[in-house]
Amino acid sequence: MAQVPLIELKNVSFQYDYTQVLSNISLKVEQGDFLALLGPNGSGKSTMLKLILGLMKPTSGQIELFGQPANTFKKRELIGYVSQKSNSFNSGFPATVKEVVASGLTKKIGLFKRHLADQNEKVMQALRDVGMDGFANRNIGELSGGQQQRVFIARALVAEPKLLILDEPTVGIDHENVQSFYDMLANLNEHHKMTMILVTHDVDTVSNRISHVACLNQTIHFHGFKNDYDSLSDDQLNAWYGHAVRKIHHTKEEKTQ
C-alpha cells in the first residue's frame, strides 16, 4: 500500500474576523517525520495546529488527515495534543493526576464504554514516561506549572497516538527535564514510529532529534529536511522572519539523511 501522508494541507488559508493569519499553506507530513514548526510570535503556528485538530475550520483550502478529509475524520484518538496553554485550566479543579491522565483515553475507549482492562497500567506507564509517577494521587492544582505540563504530556501519550502535536510543550519545564523529555520524544519517534509536530522557539535543544523543519510566518517559507534548513543563510531567515532568529549550530552531531 502506498503511504498516504498523515497530514496534508492544500492551499489552506485562515482569517480571524478581520486579520489574515494563514495564506495558502500547503504542507505534507509523512509518517515517521519529526517536524519542528518554527516561526516568530503571532506567525500562526498555534492557529495552524488548531486547524489540523479540527478546533477551527479553514477559511479556504482542504486538510486531509490519514488520507481522509479532516471534517469527516473520526479517529481523532490517533492524534495526541498538548496545547500551548495547558495550564489555563481551572486550578481549583478537584482531580487527581491519575484522573487527568486517564481522561486522555476517553476517545480511545469510546462512547458508552467505561474503561480499558489495562487502563491503570497504561496511565502509570505514561506517568513514568514523564517522570511523574510519584504524583499519581496528588491533586493536579497542587503541582507546579512545569509538573502540570508534564502531566498534560502524559495525557497526550497515554492513548499511544500515531501523531503527536505539541505546541511549545516545554515552557516552564526545567533544563534537565527538557533534555529527558526530548530524548523521550526521539525514542517514541524512532522506535514506535510516532510522527511528531513540535512547535518550539528553542531550536538548539531539539536540533539533533528532529528530521524536518517548517518555517511559518503567515505562509510556509521553508519546509524540508533539517540539513537543508541548516544550510540556509542567516539573511534568508531574517528576510522571512523580519528579525534575527537563532539558527541551529549543531553540525557535528547531525544525522545524515
Binding site: I79, F89, S103
Partner: peptide, 22 residues
C-alpha cells in the same frame, strides 16, 4: 454513560473538542 466525557469536558473544553468528542 457519559462520566468520562463529562470529566474531559469539565476539565478541559478545548482538549475535549480536539479529541473529537461530541
Amino acid at each position: 454513560l457519559f462520566y468520562k466525557e463529562l470529566f474531559v469536558l469539565s476539565f478541559d473544553d478545548e482538549y475535549a473538542k480536539a479529541s473529537g468528542l461530541p
